Computed example of a mutant assay.
Amino acid sequence: MDAVSHLIRLARVDASLDKHCLLSRSTAMDVSYESERTAPFHVLLEGTCQLQVGAHLLELRPGDVVLIPGGEPHRIITSGPGHLRGIAERQGNAFTTTLTDGVGTPVIDLFCGHYTFGPGAGAILFKSLPEPVHISFGETPETDAALRMLSSLMRTEAASEGEGTAAILSSLSSILLTMILRTARGTTTDAALWTASANTAIVRVIERVLDNPGGDWSIARMSRLTSMSRATFIRQFERSTGTTFGAFVTRVRLMVAADLLQTTSFTVAGVAAEVGFKSESAFSRAFRQQTGSTPARFRRAAGA
């Protein structure tokens, strides 16, 4: 299984399309913090606007997607003269249609939704992503065509809003997440998406570790497998993924461990050994640092 598909399976992400926004000029739409382990996303289909989150002010164009892994509050702004106007919402069966309060011809066509994930592998994955992730799918013919096809399906389904619309839009939003995680270019920060390395040798390493997290993944072995010197492998891995190889291996081991704690009857010591930790205590410390919970408490909460 390829790396992104493997990560999506481990993370067990639920997707929801919440709003179809047709905003006029001089409009501000505030998006508040929803809940823990929730990551909002926005897809701009037509027009231009700004998205303000924390210290970042992003300029969005058609084909741009923004994912906010930490769920931070943010604001969507369309330019125009006069004071910024608010929004009016019309609740449908599957999603909300959002319009500028008062009159005005829409200048942007924007879909807004969110991903929800659990406290284990999903939380570790989203925590590891840059904040925010800003990708321009319109920059290359291949990604532009893929997003146009996806957005066309979303628009068609949103217009009909019939039986099963919510489920279909949720599935299409899940496809969008997969596209984000496999796209390396266009992130807002200098940090790369470690899920989307463009280096084929590094991709093979990532897939090997995901397939067998408990294996011997020493730098010496990796340099032999990739036919690189130790220093070159370390440099290429960090440049391609934005993280160190050691941090990556630990992250994958903990994601798989969370899955095993939820789906098997292995003891905590057995899970630790399965994913490559030398002792139960070392595993418990690392797991708690990443998830805020001990493995035993995490398992009890998942069972409940």
Rank of each mutant, 00 (worst) to 15 (best):
A3I: 01
A3C: 01
S5G: 12
L7M: 14
R12V: 07
V13L: 12
S16W: 02
L17Q: 04
C21I: 14
L22F: 13
A28K: 11
S35A: 15
E36V: 15
T38E: 11
T38P: 01
L44E: 03
E46Q: 15
G47T: 12
T48N: 09
C49A: 15
Q52C: 10
G54R: 10
A55E: 11
L58M: 10
E59M: 12
E59S: 13
E59H: 13
P62V: 02
G63V: 07
V65C: 12
V65S: 05
V65H: 03
V66N: 09
G71I: 06
I77V: 15
G82S: 03
H83M: 10
L84D: 08
G86W: 04
E89D: 04
E89I: 12
G92N: 13
T100L: 06
F111R: 06
Y115G: 06
Y115P: 04
G118Q: 14
P119T: 09
P119C: 01
G120P: 07
G120K: 11
G120M: 13
K127I: 00
K127H: 11
S128N: 06
L129A: 11
P130L: 12
V133Q: 02
I135Q: 00
G138C: 05
T140S: 15
E142H: 05
T143P: 01
T143S: 11
D144P: 00
L147G: 08
R155Q: 04
T156L: 09
A159K: 10
S160K: 14
G164K: 12
G164W: 05
T165K: 04
A166M: 06
A166C: 03
S174C: 03
I175E: 07
L177M: 05
A184V: 00
T188S: 10
W194T: 13
A198T: 15
I202S: 01
V203R: 14
R204H: 02
V205S: 00
V205I: 15
V205P: 01
V209E: 02
L210T: 09
N212H: 07
A220I: 09
S223F: 01
L225V: 08
S227M: 10
S227F: 07
S229T: 15
F233D: 04
F237C: 07
R239I: 00
R239T: 04
T241L: 01
G242M: 04
T244K: 08
T250C: 04
T250A: 02
L254M: 08
L254N: 05
V256D: 06
A257C: 05
L260V: 06
S265R: 15
T267W: 05
V268N: 13
A272C: 05
E274F: 04
S279I: 14
E280H: 11
E280F: 00
F283C: 13
F283M: 13
F283P: 09
A286M: 06
Q290M: 15
A296W: 00
A296E: 10
R299E: 07
R300T: 06
R300M: 06
